[in-house]
Computed example of a mutant assay.
Amino acid sequence: MFFALPFPMINPVAIAVGPIAIRWYALAYIVGILLGWFYAKKLAGKAALSWGWNPKLIEDFVTYATLGVILGGRLGYVLFYKPMHYLQNPGEILQVWNGGMAFHGGALGVIVAIIIFARVKKLPVFGLGDIVCAVVPIGLGLGRIANFVNGELYGRATDVAWAMVFPHDEKQVLRHPSQLYQAAMEGLILFLVLLVLEKKGMRKYPGVISGTFLAGYGVARFIGEFFREPDSFLGLLTAGLSMGQLLSLPMIAVGAFIIRQALQGSFAPARPAAATR
């Protein structure tokens, strides 16, 4: 057998108080939402770039975003990954506790939430979208780390020096710790890219950060899927690509289109006219 790093056997339950147990994945969601909330409030406070944005509205949007993630993520999994199964077993669609969430569905859910919230509050869609997209990599990175801790969504077989045998792998072969690759690309690197754009004042072009997030995540996910074991019930599909890769291609295309249009000022809202004195 090739040399392998030992898989860190971490208890999947992060916090337990009596009969109440919080697992690492749930904790990643909670911490991701809280950190994202605080960072979003900081970004929203830069009124010079926000065209009348009230930072307090971030608190209201958290509910919309949470519903978008949960409903979109679940419906995305149902429609993209196991449509026939859930068509035959519709009672299982709402059984989120049994697992089954799709990021691409969650992303669509949050996009819908952004559009609805922006319309209700009379805010520029991309003004809000840029703030939301800037914080999403925080949750993505934490979620992938939780996937690693749980020993799930592991990588393809390999003989690299840092390969691991994951406890839930029936084949018990050496695999890429692809969750950590994805945590680095979808979380840390994407967050830093968007942070650089924020520091350079790119929010004066509404849509640039949103488009960069969509395209950046699509590229990161597309690359990461080459190391991740395909879903056993799907395998590889068209042109030897996984479902995650196929769903990432339109994200890249739409993201690039939004960036181009944003740099041309297509999404900049009209500034309020100066008061007559």
Rank of each mutant, 00 (worst) to 15 (best):
R175S: 08
H168P: 05
F166D: 08
K171Y: 13
P90F: 03
L241C: 01
K171G: 10
L71K: 06
A48K: 13
L43H: 08
Y64G: 04
H176W: 12
G52W: 11
L142E: 09
A16P: 01
V196I: 15
P124R: 08
L153I: 13
T66G: 04
V13A: 13
Y86W: 10
R156T: 15
R260D: 04
L57K: 13
S178I: 12
F117Y: 03
M251K: 02
R175T: 02
G218M: 12
V165G: 00
V132Y: 00
D231A: 05
Q261A: 13
R144D: 06
G18W: 08
Y181P: 01
V132W: 04
R119Q: 12
R175F: 05
K41E: 13
I189V: 15
V69I: 15
L87M: 14
V132L: 12
L49G: 03
A40S: 11
G100N: 09
P250S: 08
S248K: 07
G235N: 06
E229L: 14
R175K: 11
L71E: 10
A28K: 10
I258N: 09
A256Y: 04
L194Q: 04
W51K: 11
W162D: 07
G187H: 05
I111G: 10
A134C: 14
S178N: 06
Q264Y: 07
G127F: 09
G105E: 03
P19M: 07
C133T: 15
I258K: 09
G244V: 11
L27V: 11
G32C: 06
I189C: 14
G52C: 07
I258W: 02
F267V: 10
K200S: 11
I145F: 12
G187Y: 04
F2K: 14
P8C: 05
G244H: 08
D231E: 13
I131E: 03
W51P: 06
F257I: 14
P90W: 07
L180R: 01
G52S: 11
W37D: 04
Y217I: 10
A161H: 03
I252V: 14
G72N: 09
P206S: 08
V78Y: 06
V110S: 00
E92S: 07
Y77Q: 09
P6E: 13
A215T: 03
N150W: 00
Q95R: 15
V135T: 15
R175H: 03
P206G: 07
T276C: 11
G76I: 01
A40W: 13
N54M: 04
G218T: 08
E170N: 12
L142K: 05
L123Y: 01
K41R: 14
Y81T: 08
A215D: 08
N98I: 03
Y39H: 03
V112G: 02
A134G: 11
P12A: 02
I93P: 06
L57E: 14
P272I: 12
I189A: 15
I22L: 14
Y77V: 05
W24F: 13
S178T: 00
N54V: 08
D231S: 01
L247N: 06
Y81I: 00
G72W: 05
V165Y: 05
